[in-house]
Computed example of a mutant assay.
Amino acid sequence: MEKTVFIIDDSALARRTIKNLLENDGFDVVGETDGGANAINQYKELKPDIVTMDIAMSKMDGIRALEDILDYNPEAKVVVITGKAKEEVVKKTVGIGAKYFIAKPFEGNELVQIVEKVFNDEIVF
Rank of each mutant, 00 (worst) to 15 (best):
Q113V: 02
D121G: 13
F106Q: 02
S11W: 10
I55E: 01
E87Q: 13
I114V: 15
L13E: 10
L111E: 00
G35A: 06
I81L: 07
K86E: 14
K92R: 07
T4V: 07
I114C: 08
G83Q: 04
Q42I: 07
D25H: 02
K84G: 08
I81W: 07
F119W: 10
S11I: 15
T82R: 01
I96A: 01
K84D: 15
K99I: 09
N109P: 01
I50E: 02
L66V: 06
A12V: 10
V51P: 11
K86A: 12
K47Y: 04
A103Q: 05
V90F: 08
L21C: 10
N109F: 10
K19I: 04
M60T: 09
V51E: 02
D121K: 07
I102R: 03
V90P: 04
K92L: 12
Y100I: 02
I96R: 00
G35Q: 06
E45F: 12
R64P: 01
G108L: 05
M1P: 05
V118K: 00
I63N: 01
I8S: 01
R64M: 13
A39F: 01
A85T: 11
A12K: 09
A76G: 04
K91S: 06
F101V: 11
E2M: 13
F106H: 10
E67P: 01
D34K: 10
M57F: 09
K3A: 05
Y72N: 03
G26Y: 05
I63C: 12
I7A: 00
I18R: 06
A65E: 01
L21Y: 15
G62H: 08
F6G: 03
I102Q: 00
I40K: 03
I102A: 06
